[in-house]
Write a protein that binds this DNA or RNA. Structure first.
Lengths: 251, 251
DNA sequence: AGAACACTTCGGCCCTGACCGAAGTGTCAG
DNA sequence: CTGACACTTCGGTCAGGGCCGAAGTGTTCT
């Protein structure tokens, strides 16, 4: 029998880490933690629908893996994602989410079958969902961002790192005019903008330093509000009005 | 007891997909399949060290998930990754691999503790590993590629989509001169180059259309050879000589 | 001090799923 | 036709691990 021949495989044991994400309780907890810091154990347990003991067990597993840290403060223990792995975990979950959405759910029929999903959501630190996609379109129309037209089937997307968005010199003014407030992209290294594909839309929206700033702006102006749990965003009446003025339908 | 309070969570059930990656056998099989197409079931079974029945079971699971297709040809069944999910699966595995490498394994000490790893490897369709990183450095030195200096701790990296690499107009000539052969980047949409961070180095290398072409070139010139199994690449004696001429030490 | 609270540890239940042996189907070579 | 081969289906075993109840530790409030 050659069936039991074992070939030495030089592969990192990534399945060990996939196991951490393969349980609904841990998965939901991590998804929440990526958004919020300093979450008490009991809140996580309630959010995930399990008892405190069970959550304690899961957190021990995540702590052993170095994914979360637990700080105690009084009689509470606050759980936080380890910052050094935040980005990779978020990337893994986003790509898995993209795999959850049926591949045909692009543009045409996405509105129908994803109608139940929140119109606006965060992608951990920037704006996503339908609102994120629509805002990017407006920014491109107004020449604050340039987008190299990417064929959705272009195999260049393989690594997810090939980014078609560029900030124009006018971007600060464009954003300021859109929202009637001052805007200045905070300084930092790198290109300042990235293209992020989220699972609910399968269309890109702006991430990176610019994406974060944009979320800060619309949140600061009271156009959207973070909901207490999960990643969905509430668009305020003021937000509906303002976005409508930009040609974005929020109904 | 409020511990059993269940909050409706609007999250895609990505843990179901994580389960597919959470088993060593399926994980190794997928890792192999991302590189190779048309792999017979028995080869996969041998590669993963399990019986044919067991592999059949795993493939049924992957087929139900829409991740692989099985075509029969004579008495063989050839397994292939579903092209529409190839990119996302590869991205997930690469990020999980990055999480496997200890976070401190950047630049300074990576050589020591990762010495056992192959010096060159593929990242499914382009060159990675130490050789991929070194070649990128040479390309930047010779002004074929421009790199915006990114702070490794820059939180802009969050989505993995913020890409600091640009092709210069001279890139074709630079590559041609490096390898003493004609080179022309095949046409296509998009930027043509991406930055890919692989688990073994935690430094970026070139992916995208350019990354694929580069692998084709060095493979075509006989500088590297794909090994029969896994993703490691063998650097040929000719390759050692040529890369050495570029200032890349392959010992 | 006593009670309420947040959390952890321990122990036991039970289900999921990975695995293989045995047996069956389809294919090819002689 | 017969045997070798590639693969699948079925059935049974068994380990891993997710879950909670009970009990214990430390903290805060009254």
């Amino acid at each position: 029998m050659s069936t039991t021949r074992t070939v030495p495989v030089v592969v990192p044991p990534f399945w060990e880490l996939a196991k951490l994400l393969a349980d609904p309780t841990r998965a939901k907890a991590l998804d929440l933690l990526l958004d919020r810091s300093r979450t008490p154990v009991s809140y996580l347990a309630g959010y995930c629908g399990v008892s405190a003991q069970t959550m304690t067990g899961h957190l021990a597993v995540l702590r052993d893996a170095g994914w979360v840290t637990v700080r105690r403060s009084g009689r509470y223990r606050y759980v936080e994602i380890e910052p050094s792995v935040h980005a990779d975990i978020a990337a893994v979950i986003e790509h898995l989410g993209a795999l959850c959405a049926p591949p045909e759910a692009s543009s045409l029929n996405s509105h129908r079958e994803l109608a139940a999903l929140p119109r606006a959501r965060t992608c951990y630190d920037h704006l996503a969902g339908r609102l994120g996609v629509d805002l990017l379109r407006v920014l491109i129309d107004r020449r604050g961002i340039e987008c190299e037209d990417i064929d959705p089937d272009d195999p260049d997307r393989v690594t997810g790192a090939d980014c078609p968005l560029h900030l124009t010199p006018e971007v600060d003014d464009v954003v300021a005019e859109m929202f009637g407030s001052r805007f200045e992209l905070p300084p930092g290294r790198g290109r300042g903008i990235g293209a992020c594909m989220d699972w609910s839309q399968r269309e890109i929206h702006a991430s990176g330093r610019f994406g974060r700033s944009l979320l800060t702006v619309v949140e600061g102006l009271g156009l959207v509000r973070r909901r207490p749990a999960g990643r969905s965003l509430e668009i305020t009446p003021l937000g509906v009005e303002r976005f409508s003025g930009l040609g974005i339908d929020c109904t």
